[in-house]
Simulated assay, not measured.
Amino acid sequence: MRQRKVKNVEARLAAFSEFSVVDGKKMKGNWKNIFDNDNDIYMELGCGKGQFSLKLAEMHPDRNYIAVEGQDTVLLRALEKAAIAQLPNIKFMQAFVQDVTEYFEEDELAGIYLNFSDPWPKDRHAKRRLTHTKFLKGYATVIKNSGIVEFKTDNDALFEFSIREIKANDYEILEYSRDIHNSAFPSKEITTEYEDKFKEANKNINYVKFVV
């Protein structure tokens, strides 16, 4: 979805520097220093306006969260919410991450969340999907043993593709649903802004949680 332009977006983003990381690649191997503790670190890749990660950070003060968003105008909305929440265990980063190993050291994360990623529907763009094997192998490198990936999407074709990729790499599926909001999984309780709209429209949301 095309976002409206925001005047002086760079200056407005800078005003929230307390809650953001300017250059995530420079933090590789040293993310714990930002949080000043040894708690597990989780990342949401494509956090949108921040509702999902902020709720997780509120519910789990014993965990740290990094919320990544590439679009500056969208990230600004997330940072505005972060300023209100004032949670010490979450940071935001502006980036279009193509290779997570450029940002994180081996075993530096405990888990990754992928919510409503771009489906890249054309076959020739399959390698751009965040659940393509090349991305999954990167996640497996930066996530420590028994760490998890959780993936939600409203796009049925993308979900089917993702399940094939997960199985092709022999990752263990822990939870699976083609309609998470009519399931018993606790993961349905924390939603994104987009997800709330889909729920209101009674659109099924696909969900899978797996170990890499």
Rank of each mutant, 00 (worst) to 15 (best):
L114W: 05
V97E: 03
K7T: 09
V97S: 04
E200P: 01
F185L: 11
M1H: 10
Y139A: 00
Y139R: 00
R4Y: 15
A157V: 14
F104V: 09
Y176V: 08
I34A: 11
E160W: 00
F104N: 06
E106H: 10
R77P: 00
A15S: 14
L76S: 06
T153S: 05
L75G: 09
Y194I: 01
N33R: 13
D118T: 01
F185N: 02
F185Y: 13
V97K: 00
L174V: 15
D156W: 02
G29M: 03
R129L: 06
E200Y: 08
E150D: 06
A85Y: 14
K137Q: 14
A67P: 12
M27T: 06
E150L: 07
L54M: 07
I190A: 07
E175P: 02
K152R: 12
D107M: 05
M59H: 13
P61H: 06
N202C: 09
D38M: 10
G50S: 06
K197S: 13
N64F: 09
H125A: 02
F92W: 05
I166R: 00
L109Q: 03
D179V: 01
R2Y: 08
R2Q: 13
D40I: 01
F161A: 08
D107V: 07
A184F: 10
V212C: 13
E165A: 10
V212M: 07
K209F: 04
K81S: 09
E195V: 04
Q3P: 11
H132M: 03
P88H: 02
I84M: 12
S187E: 15
F198C: 12
R2P: 07
E172L: 13
L136Q: 04
Y207E: 07
R63M: 12
D118W: 01
A126T: 08
H181N: 11
N169E: 15
I148H: 03
V9K: 05
A11W: 04
V142P: 04
K122M: 12
I163M: 10
D123C: 02
A67R: 07
K144N: 08
N182H: 15
Y113P: 00
D72L: 10
I34C: 11
T141S: 12
N30F: 12
K209C: 14
K28H: 05
V74G: 04
N182M: 07
D62I: 02
P61S: 11
I90C: 04
S117I: 15
E106N: 10
E102T: 10
N89F: 09
E172D: 11
K134I: 15
I166S: 05
K5F: 13
D36I: 09
N169D: 14
A82D: 11
K122E: 11
K197N: 11
V22K: 13
L13N: 03
I148Y: 11
M43W: 03
V9M: 06
H60M: 14
K28I: 05
Y113M: 09
K55P: 01
